[in-house]
Simulated scan of single mutants.
Amino acid sequence: MPVPKKKPTTQSSDGSTPESSSNTLPEQEEFRQHLRCLAVSAVQVLIEQVMREELEQCIGASWGEYTPHRRGYRNGSYTRDLITPTGRIEDLKVPRDREGVFHSQAFERYNRYEPAVAEALTQMFVAGVSTQKVGEVTQTLMGVAPSASAVSRLNQTLTEQFEIWRQRGLQSHYRVVYLDGVHFTVRHGTQTDATMILTALGVDLEGNREVLIFRASAEESKEGWSALLQEMRTRGVNQIDLIVTDGHDGLLAAIADLFPATLRQRCLVHKQRNVMSAIPKREQQEVMTELKGIWQQEKKDDALVNLAAFKAKYQKRYPEAIRSLTEDEEHLLTFYAFPSVMHRYIRSTNAIESLFSNVRQRTDQIGAFTTETSCLTIVWAVMQDIRLPKIPVG
């Protein structure tokens, strides 16, 4: 029989080669869905076979077999859906026995996806991934979005862990404690309000940094800071070598009441900003160099000499700048009372402000928190996920 000749290939007007519809491959997404369905069907067959074998071992006899060691009888099956890493299995046939003692281990193993999803949700969320994105990723990985119960358990778990954390005992002695606050937005019905989270970041006697305590407050006030410091005392703190702060009056008043004997360092970064705000822009660079030169001296005596010279030079030209500089003068050079290796870490509140910046980067996608409790819980979870390196403590 003669071999039929191949039909000549023709080209369309745009130069492309038409393909026969019978040879056209399915679209990529359609093909992937087809493979997913095949994989789900295969997993269903496997699970059902495993469960039948488990039931056989449970009752001591195979289908239709009569043995002297038989411990029960089959009682058909029931169907239910099951989520697996491959995808959703619908109408999975689960065998059962008359006495109701059979319990499939295979089913339990595949039913453990929700704790894994909850863990993934936690890790992704505290890393700054949006809730919508978490859902999309979970949908891709599991073939189904996280269930309401999984999300509920996640929230409950985080809340319980946060409650344990904020009731724990604290060490009695800390080398340094940084105090500062950060604003977040909380929704109250149709209104949104700014909530201040007052925070204490501690450095222990070995140089380990840790968030000790934080609490929500309507504003940064003496009452709010007093409540935080009193709670620190109640939970075991009785000695702090140095407290590093900005110049908020309410905070300073609370420290004077509850830790009057503790040395205090005024944040020099804040102080520099305050002084520079009273200096014309054309002279700020020169003045800033002189100002920083005060506390960059190796010895306190040299710093005091430079401080006196700075005040004498600019007192008449920029009295407001000098007033700002001397406002908290007795606490500007406290850091010299500590080993020189500590100076760069304790001259400012940068340590705690850096922590706040990291937290904000991860929580910005939330926008407004739904409740104050959710704000505290998520901020706590994020803080626990941030690595805080040790600092030298002399």
Results as ranks from 00 to 15, higher is better:
M383T: 07
K390T: 10
A39V: 02
E90Y: 15
V151L: 14
T84F: 03
Y178C: 14
M276A: 08
V341P: 06
V382R: 02
A381L: 03
G224I: 07
G15I: 12
A368Y: 08
H173L: 13
A256H: 13
L121F: 12
A337I: 07
I391P: 07
E210N: 13
L198S: 04
Q171N: 01
H34M: 13
L25Y: 05
E90M: 15
Q57W: 07
P8Y: 09
P260T: 02
F356A: 10
S22L: 09
G247I: 08
A61D: 01
H331L: 02
V134Y: 04
I89R: 03
G64C: 14
T157Y: 04
G64P: 07
R175I: 10
A381W: 02
R264L: 06
R209C: 05
I83W: 00
A145C: 10
P280D: 05
G64I: 13
V341K: 06
V94K: 00
I391C: 05
T363D: 08
L158S: 01
C58R: 01
T349W: 13
Q239P: 03
T289F: 15
L263P: 02
G76T: 14
K390I: 04
E48V: 13
G207R: 01
C375P: 10
F107R: 00
A312R: 12
Y66T: 11
L82A: 00
E29N: 11
E320D: 12
D204A: 01
T10I: 09
E65T: 06
Y314Q: 07
P85E: 05
H248E: 07
F356H: 12
T377E: 08
S354A: 10
E219P: 00
V393S: 06
I279W: 08
M51W: 01
D328L: 07
K7V: 14
S16L: 13
E136H: 13
N238Y: 05
E298S: 06
V186K: 03
L388F: 07
R209V: 03
R233A: 10
T131K: 11
P146S: 12
T10Y: 13
D328T: 00
S62Q: 09
R344L: 13
D302K: 01
C267D: 05
I366M: 08
E108K: 02
G293D: 14
T79M: 09
Y66S: 08
E99G: 14
R235V: 09
L229G: 05
I240R: 04
L179E: 05
D364T: 15
T349N: 12
R168P: 10
V269Q: 05
S172H: 15
S20R: 12
F184V: 14
T326H: 00
Y314T: 12
A303N: 03
W225C: 06
R32W: 07
Y314P: 12
N111P: 01
P115M: 05
L258F: 00
E56N: 08
F107S: 00
N155W: 06
Y73P: 11
L304Y: 04
F369D: 01
R187F: 04
I164V: 03
Q296I: 11
L376R: 01
T24D: 05
E160W: 04
R74N: 04
Q132M: 14
P115E: 02
Q11W: 11
C37N: 11
C58D: 11
T371Y: 07
K271D: 09
E329S: 11
H343G: 06
S149E: 10
A227F: 08
K281P: 04
G87M: 11
I378D: 08
